[in-house]
């Protein structure tokens, strides 16, 4: 039985390791090391980005049926591998991105979690520009993840990306969030 003090330190260490993982993940994606990123995707992944709705009396509503992404391991892998093709014009040249991850919260006692899994929420702000232009756009989202501890790191077992935009100001979404 840990004392309160030890328990606090344990949870701080967990929070720190989760944050370090999210920063590392952001770095992989910003550097377009997509295959290295995909090494951290669990083979039972559910990767979703529902369509945000705009309603008169609700601050945050999401479509029950409509989405941008609803990927399993195979379809997410295909999306990663597509960018290996010299014909994936959306990312030739690659978009310039910078992911800012903040407001991280970690919970270990969610009933839906299995052993070694963590419920992690974070805010994500992505700066994105493309081509020979000063034009840029932002994606802003709350991410709700289930992270699973592995020997030396984490893998993403579930991710829901709750985008803040209803009408997108972008050519496409050719990056992972």
């Amino acid at each position: 039985m840990l004392t309160d003090h030890q328990a606090d330190i344990e949870s701080l260490l967990v929070e720190r390791s989760v944050e370090q993982f999210l920063y590392y993940e952001a770095e992989l994606l910003d550097n377009r090391e997509l295959h290295e990123w995909f090494d951290h995707i669990a083979d039972d992944i559910s990767y979703r980005m529902p369509r945000r709705l705009m309603r008169e009396n609700q601050a945050s509503a999401f479509s029950e049926q409509g989405y941008y992404f609803n990927e399993d391991y195979g379809s997410l892998k295909a999306r990663v591998e597509r960018f290996d093709s010299e014909y994936a014009w959306a990312e030739r040249p690659p978009t310039r991105t910078r992911r800012h991850v903040t407001n991280v919260s970690v919970s270990e006692d969610d009933d839906s979690l299995d052993d070694g899994e963590l419920h992690v929420e974070s805010n994500l702000l992505v700066y994105l520009s493309r081509g020979d232009s000063e034009a840029h756009t932002f994606y802003s989202a709350r991410r709700i993840d289930t992270l699973r501890q592995t020997d030396e790191s984490f893998e993403i077992a579930d991710r829901e990306i709750r985008l803040d935009q209803t009408v997108l100001d972008t050519d496409n979404i050719s990056i992972f969030l």
Partner: peptide, 26 residues
């Protein structure tokens, strides 16, 4: 649901086809 999945995988802002069309039109 499978048809809707096929739609979003191919077209719309995240579609594997359409991602590459829009920058061309631009």
């Amino acid at each position: 649901q499978r048809m809707y999945k096929m739609y979003t995988s191919n077209f719309g802002p995240t579609g594997n086809f359409e991602q590459d069309d829009v920058p061309i039109w631009k």
